[in-house]
Amino acid sequence: MILSSALIFATACFTLALLMNLWRVVKAPGVPDRILALDTMVINFIAILVLYGIIEGTAVYFEASILIAMVGFISTVAYARFMLRGNIIE
């Protein structure tokens, strides 16, 4: 009972956070803000995947969240580097 309501609360919090990030991606004042919002979206999505793993009671989703964490990190660094140097691999 306590655990299921806490799970619902945490999922609701992270879902609202994802929606706010999406709003930020659409209406951002500059490109670095947009990259930052995308990076935060990746981190929030990892949290939602792990919460879904707890709800379902399986450990299948951890591999997916590790992959998403790696892809998110690489893409954020690539975006930031492209803005910084106009090139990704020099």
Binding site: S5, L18, A37
Partner: peptide, 29 residues
């Protein structure tokens, strides 16, 4: 055990919400 897990979940949810709210609300980049 349930209370411990639930406490971690609630604190984590609040932190995640506050982080994304700050992304919208704070004044400069």
């Amino acid at each position: 055990q349930e209370v411990t897990v639930a406490a971690f979940l609630v604190v984590a949810g609040i932190f995640g919400f506050v982080g994304s709210f700050g992304l919208i609300k704070l004044p400069d980049p």
